[in-house]
Every structure is written in C-alpha cells, then in structure tokens.
C-alpha cells in the first residue's frame, strides 16, 4: 500500500514540475498584461510537434530539440502579440480572450490540416531509474529536471537582467513604468514571447514521454488554468508549486477513487480556490 502510494506520488510530482512549467507561460503573460492567453494550448501542441519533427526529420536529440523549440517560441510569441494582442491590450477582457482564442483556432485549424489529428509519439527512451521500491522512467526524471532548469533560468532573467526587471516593473504598474521611460510595448511583447517560449518548451518535454495530437494542448491548457489559480494568477514561482499540487493530486487521487474522478477533484478545487482565495494558495493579498 505505502509503496504504491509513494510510487504514484513520485510519478505525479515529477509530472507536476512539467505541468508547472507549462502553467508558468500562462501565468507570466497574465501577470504582466492581464491577458488570459487562450492560444496557450495550441502553443504547447506546437512545442510537441516541433520537438517531434526535429527528432524524426533532423535526427536531433529530443532535449536539444526542446531547446531549439524554446528558442523558436520567442519569435512566435512576438508575432502573436504583434498581430493579435497588441491592439486589444487595453480593451475589455472579452476582446483579448476572443483574440487569443482566434489565434487558437488558426493554429489548430492549420495544425489539423498539416498533421491530422492522429496520435504521434517520440520513440525514445532513457531507461529507468530504480531506487528501492520506486521505478522512475528516465524521460520523466530528465523532463522534471529540465522544467526546474527553465524555471531557474526564468527566475534569474526576471530578477537579475535589465529586461527582466523591466518586465517586473511593467507587471507591477504599467503606467508608472512608462513614466520612468520603460518602453512598455516592447516589454509586453517580450513577456508574451517568454510566455510562449516556456509553453512550447513544456510541450516539448511532455512529448518525450506522452503520446500527443495537435489537440492535446487543450488538456494542458485547462490544467494550466487550474495550476495558475492554485499558485496565484500572475506568480511564475507559484505556478511551479501549483504544478506540484496538481501532479501530486493526479498521483494520489487514483489510489483512493476511480481515475475518472480526477478531473472532478481538480476542477472542483479550482472553482473553490477561485472563490475562497482568488489570489492563490500562496497569495498574500
């Protein structure tokens, strides 16, 4: 019993790091510009397919491919921001929600035409790691480690680089930042680029151990909503914590009730946290 519990919890927590990374992309964009990016799921899916194509067609090591996908994610984010988001950044929420959803439809539409909706997977193994009763697939361990690396990178960027500090200033108070000479449009575009980059990287990492279709991003988008709310919308580090909570739940809940109840628990918790503590479990405000 305990061994099984420990095994599922480990499994879940490792996944949680990657979920957390995916959510971080969403929460960063929300924190800086109060836009809920409904193109988040398709970007994750693009990350999956990007990694897959690099692996199958270019023969790249999947982790190298994830890095490449992340690098490409940045200009993709700039592009989405410039085309769809910039004009509605000060409009009511509905406009930015629908604008990013339109991007979602475009990516899914083109993606379906190009890749069809049949499942793919990256045929790749890192062996397994055994520690006592625990057996952990290497890919998951590396993915969790990769997620931590990306998080650390983001943290260092936000807190110790000039553009990162500008992002935090704009997130804090856009008008004041503008008055201090920070070019807010550039900073917003950069934040959107970073958010897209992180989402794509998370997609790539997920693709190393789960099969996927162009529609898979939707699932992770919904998970990202839950995680962001658990960790406090707009707090990148909170997202990692939220990811671990969600991953832990996904590991533990099935040992107590049928696995199909997991989403009921997840979304129930989500609505509950929104109502009781909309600033997130860690939120101070």
């Amino acid at each position: 019993m305990w061994e099984q519990l420990a095994a599922s919890l480990t499994d879940g927590l490792l996944l949680g790091f990657v979920y957390g990374l995916a959510a971080m992309g969403l929460t960063l964009i929300w924190g800086v510009m109060s836009v809920i990016n409904l193109a988040h799921g398709p970007v994750i899916a693009l990350g999956m397919f990007g990694t897959y194509l690099c692996f199958t067609h270019l023969g790249l090591n999947p982790y190298l491919a994830v890095v490449l996908v992340a690098v490409l994610g940045l200009p993709l984010g700039f592009f989405i921001y410039g085309v769809a988001v910039h004009r509605v950044i000060n409009a009511p929420h509905l406009s930015s929600l629908l604008a990013t959803f339109a991007v979602n439809m475009i990516i899914i539409g083109v993606g379906t035409a190009v890749f069809s909706t049949s499942p793919q997977n990256i045929d790749f193994s890192m062996g397994t790691l055994e520690a006592g009763p625990l057996t952990v697939p290497g890919t998951r361990l590396v993915a969790a480690f990769g997620a931590v690396l990306f998080t650390a990178g983001l943290y260092l960027f936000l807190y110790f680089s000039r553009p990162g500090k500008a992002i935090r200033a704009v997130a804090n108070n856009r008008r004041a930042a503008e008055l201090m000479g920070i070019p807010s449009s550039l900073v917003l575009a950069l934040s959107f680029g970073l958010g897209t980059m992180i989402a794509a990287a998370a997609g790539g990492l997920i693709a190393t151990f789960f099969p996927f279709t162009i529609l898979s991003g939707g699932t992770y988008e919904l998970k990202s909503f839950v995680i962001c709310v658990l960790g406090g919308l707009g707090h990148p580090l909170g997202a990692l914590l939220g990811g671990l909570i969600l991953g832990g739940l996904e590991g533990l809940v099935p040992t107590f009730m049928p696995v199909s109840w997991v989403p009921v628990v997840e979304f129930g918790l989500f609505v509950l946290v929104l109502l009781v503590k909309p600033s997130g479990l860690m939120g101070a405000k």
């Binding site: 929420h93 929600l97 199909s260 997991v262 009921v264 979304f267 609505v271 929104l274 109502l275």
Partner: peptide
C-alpha cells in the same frame, strides 16, 4: 462575486467540473 477574467475562468472550471461529474 468574481469580476472580469476571474469570472470567465471560473465558468470554464465549472463546465469542466460538470463534464467530469457527468462522466462519473
């Protein structure tokens, strides 16, 4: 009681929770 995007998010959550509930 929630406003703006928080309300929108909550409605998405409720829909997903309802779907998962009907599933079970």
């Amino acid at each position: 009681r929630l406003r703006g995007a928080y309300f929108a998010l909550a409605t998405i959550g409720i829909n997903e929770a309802a779907r998962a509930f009907a599933d079970n």
